[in-house]
């Protein structure tokens, strides 16, 4: 087993998306709590104590999202208090908190996903599905920094010519339009060189193969198998209705059947699998180093 940043991108994607996916489509409070805990834990494991600002933002977002629902929705039977002649109910508050947990945990998962799935890893995934699109994306990935740098150069050149004044918004916008227009011409005209270079190296000669530096190792197989096992378990439990939670009109918590417990166990393992994989690797390296 390797940490997700080391393993095959496909495995990493499956692992993160299945953890995030279940939490997105399920309103069970235990599952959501596990998802939130797992997502935050993985983010902390990867980024350490850094990223304080994003934690603060996510906390605020959680609070806002949790409070919006009881203010807007007045379903439910347990009235907490009355605001502006409208009842604020416990059910709506809990529902809001669950929804907020679903959203915020998904945001954490996808933040980690974005960090892990750098351009080349995403391209690897895409290349499996569609080599041609992967190539378009790869070119676009190359163009973005190139164009940004060129835009900077154009801006400087226009300023040196006195053609770029930055005053009010309209002037700034107009200046941006000018820079963008020059950039567009440059990009299109020079694109023909890229196209020529592709043709010169036999693009379109026949069926393309896809070369990649990523391999599928034993550790990837282990991680994938574990992911699928836990995901399957959680799905079965979910599909059988063992995890269904009713919020309106009154709260009905799911029963603690063995199936539900198995579902919680599976999902809990799935949610912490990324962190565990990372921890495992840290442990292994410290062992190796102490032996050296």
């Amino acid at each position: 087993m390797y940490s997700l940043s080391e393993c095959n991108p496909a495995v990493a994607a499956v692992c993160l998306l299945s953890a995030a996916g279940i939490a997105m489509f399920c309103m069970n409070p235990v599952i959501l709590a596990l998802s939130l805990a797992g997502a935050v834990c993985f983010f902390l494991v990867r980024n350490g104590a850094g990223g304080g600002k994003s934690h603060l933002f996510f906390c605020l977002l959680f609070a806002v999202l949790a409070l919006v629902n009881p203010l807007v929705s007045h379903n439910g039977v347990t009235v907490l208090f009355v605001l502006n002649h409208r009842p604020v109910t416990l059910e709506a508050l809990l529902y809001g908190m669950a929804a907020a947990a679903a959203v915020v945990s998904a945001l954490y998962w996808f933040r980690s996903f974005s960090q892990l799935m750098t351009g080349d890893r995403l391209l690897y995934l895409f290349g499996r599905l569609s080599p041609r699109l992967a190539l378009v994306l790869s070119m676009a990935f190359r163009f973005v920094p190139l164009f940004s740098r060129q835009a900077k150069k154009i801006r400087q050149a226009q300023r040196a010519l006195g053609r770029l004044r930055e005053g009010n918004i309209a002037e700034t916008f107009r200046g941006n339009v000018r820079v963008f227009s020059i950039l567009l011409t440059w990009a299109l005209e020079n694109g023909i060189v890229t196209a020529d270079s592709m043709a010169a190296r036999g693009y379109g000669v026949g069926r393309r193969t896809q070369f990649s530096v990523f391999r599928f190792r034993r550790g990837d197989a282990v991680l994938l198998a574990l992911t699928l096992l836990f995901f399957g378990g959680a799905c079965v439990s979910l599909a059988c209705g063992a995890l269904d939670m009713v919020y309106y009109p009154a709260l009905v918590f799911p029963e603690c059947t063995p199936l539900a417990l198995a579902g919680y166990l599976c999902y809990g393992l799935l949610a912490f699998l990324p962190s565990l994989a990372q921890g495992w690797e840290v442990l292994r390296w410290s062992c190796l180093r102490s032996r050296i």
């Binding site: 351009g119 080349d120 391209l123 080599p131 190539l135 790869s138 070119m139 990935f141 190359r142 190139l146 020079n190 694109g191 060189v193 890229t194 020529d196 270079s197 592709m198 190296r201 036999g202 693009y203 379109g204 000669v205 026949g206 069926r207 393309r208 193969t209 896809q210 070369f211 530096v213």
Partner: peptide
């Protein structure tokens, strides 16, 4: 600058061979 097609060095090296299948 413009005659390179892909975004990574290894992919650029492999590009022609990929085209040949």
């Amino acid at each position: 600058e413009q005659q390179l097609v892909t975004d990574r060095v290894w992919h650029e090296l492999a590009f022609g061979l990929e085209n040949l299948g």
